[in-house]
Design a protein around this nucleic acid. Structure first.
Lengths: 199, 199
DNA sequence: GAAAGGAAACGAGACGATCCGTATTGATGG
DNA sequence: CCATCAATACGGATCGTCTCGTTTCCTTTC
């Protein structure tokens, strides 16, 4: 009666796994990131340190897994951007929502922690791209392809480039705290992108 | 015979200061950033740890000062972008040069370390903006203003936004290692920016 | 079926290693 | 002579490993 190959040793695994990830998310969201220690995670999760290290090889991996699980929960199924047929309106809606996300201090700390771990760990960065960034980008590109077919976007445009021009300025302004993140700013990024890649 | 205000106690100060900054730059350029410790810096510089802490309040500050000094040396005077009258050609020259800079592993590690320190320290980020980013941006904006006067750029364009659309995609692609940094990519960013903000 | 047995996983935390930032000490040089 | 220095000991914190009884659940046995 073996499900896959190791069903017997998944005894109390899932409960503690979830507790560890939840505790990590909570700590990252509410504390300075330097305060987020493995011991604090273990204590908050009511778990021994070894239970953490039995599953993940390092603190970085735990933090990453915690944020990864967050996105998997939130999505449920695959993400999809609104498609009302009006590209400009749809993009402004999404960009304004993104701006508001970054305004949330908890979300801010979460993503900042993620970027810290990623910036100096190429392997983690690759996993981030594969499991978090790529799916989101595919959803965005699907919306852009729809716009290309509707003649609202240059049919020859490189969609990776379009997405970078649209999102990278927002991301950089947030990361470097180099300017205010407002709805007007979100709109102006959409406007600039559509001027650059419009039909 | 006091030069400025503290000349008498600047006996061996400058020599060790330079040695500390040089050692820091060398270590950051050649090692994994986790290996860059204050003790390693002190040993490489032939200096006691206390001599480091006498000058800077933290390791972050030392790393930042080391990179700051680097840019001050390189510049000599204030930076200025080429201005041949051809905005597209000038920008492509600068963007291609930037792409090449990021291709250097030592430069890569340097900037990655800087971003790591900045990402979770708002005070350091502010100093980074004031002393490193702002002067560079001013030089770039000066070139863009010249283009506006020459009618090569929309006179109403927000130059901060123009710079973000131009540079942020390159920065993000480098930071997240999400794609190749080539001369063709540099060119396409200039093309997109000029389509968005051209006359 | 239910009790007994055993092994894997567990919580707790001691431990060694490393690093930060401070304090001390004896040497150096102006 | 005395401020500065290199060297280094030190306390505090953290990481990741290791150990130790305990808990939980699967298997075996009756």
């Amino acid at each position: 009666m073996s499900n896959e190959r190791g069903p017997d040793h998944s005894r109390r695994k899932e409960r503690s796994r979830q507790a560890i990830l939840a505790a990590t998310r909570a700590l990252v969201a509410e504390e300075e990131y330097e305060k987020v220690t493995v011991e604090a995670i273990a204590a908050r999760a009511g778990v021994g340190k070894q239970t953490i290290y039995r599953r993940w090889p390092s603190k970085s991996a735990v933090v990453f897994a915690a944020l990864l699980a967050l996105s998997e929960d939130a999505d449920g199924r695959s993400v999809a951007l609104p498609d009302t047929g009006d590209l400009e309106a749809d993009l402004k809606l999404v960009m304004r929502a993104t701006v508001e996300e970054f305004a949330d201090p908890a979300f801010d700390r979460l993503i900042r922690a993620l970027n810290t771990e990623i910036a100096n760990d190429a392997a983690l960065a690759a996993e981030y791209r594969e499991k978090l960034a790529q799916p989101l980008e595919e959803a965005k590109k699907a919306r852009l392809r729809s716009a290309q077919e509707a003649g609202q976007l240059d049919a020859d445009a490189d969609l990776d480039l379009v997405l970078e021009v649209l999102y990278a300025p927002l991301f950089q302004r947030w990361l470097h705290r180099s300017g205010p993140l407002t709805a007007a700013y979100a709109d102006s990024l959409v406007d600039a992108t559509l001027r650059a890649f419009g039909p």
